[in-house]
Amino acid sequence: MKKFLYTLIFTFLLGALFTGVALAQGNNPPTDDEVNAVAHKLYCPVCESTPLDVCPTEACHDWRELIRTMLAEGKTEDEIIKHFEEQYGARVLAEPPKEGFYWLVYLLPPAVILAGAVVLFRSLKEWTKPKAAAPVSGGAGGASSSSAEKDEYVTRLEEELKKQK
C-alpha cells in the first residue's frame, strides 16, 4: 500500500511536471510579432544588408522558426542573439559589437568631425579677426556698416529694385 502510495505520488508529480511544461508551452506560444522583434535585430548572414524579419529567402524563414523555437524554450532575446552571433559571427548583428577593433567604427567619425569643426572654427576666427594693416578689398564692409540696425534684407531688396527701374 505504501509502495502504491509512493508510486502514485511520483506519478502525480511527474505528470504535474510534464503538464506544467506542456502548459507553459501551450499557453504562450511565441507570436509572430515576438519572433519578428528579435529577428529585426539580426541580419541575415547570407543576404547582405537585410534584417532577418523581412528577408524573404527560405534560409531566413528557417532562422525565424529557430527563433520561435528558442523563444518557446524560454530563451531571452539576448540569449538568442548571442546564439546567432556564436554560430555565424558578428556579421549577424545590426552593428559591430562595442569591443576591441570594432570601436573604430564608432570612434573614427566623431574624431574626424571634431577635427573638421576645430579647423573650421579656427579658420573662421582667423578670417574674422580685424586686420588693421590690410585694407578691406572691394569694399566688402559696405554691407556690414550701420545697416545692422535696420532690416538689412528689405533695404537691400529695395536698393536692387531701384536699380532695376
Binding site: 541580419y43 559571427g89 558578428a90 556579421r91 567604427v105
Partner: peptide
C-alpha cells in the same frame, strides 16, 4: 568598415541602420 574589419580581423561585420 566591413571591408576594413575583414582586412584586419578576418571577420566581416554588418554596419546597419541603427548605426
Amino acid at each position: 568598415f566591413p571591408l576594413v574589419s575583414e582586412l584586419f580581423t578576418g571577420q566581416k561585420v554588418t554596419v546597419g541602420p541603427p548605426f
